[in-house]
Design a protein around this nucleic acid. Structure first.
Lengths: 193, 193
DNA sequence: GTCTGACTTAGACATTCGACTAAGACTCCG
DNA sequence: CGGAGTCTTAGTCGAATGTCTAAGTCAGAC
């Protein structure tokens, strides 16, 4: 064996985490086309050979990036709606995230999606996180739907919320914000009344 | 001079069109990262040096691709809503496009958007087409909004329609269709009653 | 103290890329 | 029919890519 397992695994996982963090930064700064072994290594401050040694390929590293990001995205959503707060507060928090000035999170998420458009093997991960997100929202919106007397079926309501959220993300990444605030304001008024 | 202008310009523009067509095919088949001079030339059946000779760079060719696509997208929307048909028919046609089996159109559109996320010089084109689309919908939805007694302001309604359309496109490119039909069915019922 | 085996490093490899160029082909004008 | 100028072609160039390998390092085992 030769090397203390604990030391090894922490050193190794530190480097691996550094590379995954670097991958997210590169996705934000340059998009998925900018994710190369050498750039990742430089960003992470490690040797470029490690990408292959640790992950086997750039492809695998991106899969791991997606998996790790997925976990965080889901837990963020779950925490948000699981909180013991009035629904209106939760909604406001979610919408604040959506239109926040820092779009790094959304950039990573959409870059990974754009990558998956041309890499079918990544799609199952996307489908999984989508299904989880949907489940969280189905749970979170069931009671408020009754409370606010929203006539549309729960499935349709959740689909509407998810898709218009995605549309807003997409617009904002292209620098488009026109009309978003009017829409969110109307929802706000509808919920506050 | 040397060459008949008409012959030249048609021959040249034939080749240029072929390259732009090729760019759209490559965007559909491989994404924007797959758009290379040699691949474009092979797809278009022309010499790979022509990309540089005609367009100056791959970058410029993609700008032209975006411009040409934009024109078609806008005129398609305009024609759709300008037709002398009941609003419900127009809506159904638009939704049929949205969830059609052939997503080549949406793939091109979203690949160009993903490209623009990392090429600020392309954003103005996106903003322009977005504004045009918005203008068409503002015009198309003003009367039906009154007719169907939709209480939300026109701006908010149009934003909602645009963003949830974008969200559905985005989902479908990742192979996700869950919940879309329930949402569209509900809208359908709301409009048919 | 030296051996062992996993970890790390720098570098090599073939490939591919965008961009460019020099030579050839072609078309029309005079 | 010959010259002029544009269009087309094949090929070159340096840079960058993913992958892999051989040499080197280093902590603990014996």
């Amino acid at each position: 064996m030769g090397v203390d397992l604990m030391t090894v695994s922490t050193a190794r996982s530190t480097a691996e985490e550094a590379l995954l963090d670097a991958a997210e930064r590169v996705l934000v700064d340059a998009g998925h086309a900018g994710v190369t072994t050498r750039r990742l290594a430089e960003e992470a401050g490690v040797n470029h050979g490690l990408v292959h040694y640790y992950f086997g390929s750039v492809e695998n590293l991106l899969v791991r990036t997606l998996e790790r990001f997925t976990e965080r995205l889901i837990s963020r959503q779950r925490e948000l709606y699981a909180a013991d707060l009035p629904f209106l507060e939760k909604w406001r928090t979610a919408m604040r995230y959506l239109v926040s000035d820092d779009s790094a999170y959304e950039k990573i998420w959409l870059e990974l999606q754009a990558l998956a458009w041309n890499r079918p093997e990544l799609r199952e991960h996307l489908a999984a996180v989508h299904a989880e997100w949907r489940a969280v929202l189905m749970d979170a919106f069931a009671e408020p739907r009754e409370h606010y007397g929203i006539e549309m079926p729960l499935e349709a309501l959740v689909s509407l919320v998810m898709t218009f959220n995605e549309g807003i993300m997409l617009d904002r990444l292209s620098g488009i914000t026109e009309g978003h605030q009017q829409l969110l304001d109307w929802v706000e008024r509808r919920l506050a009344s």
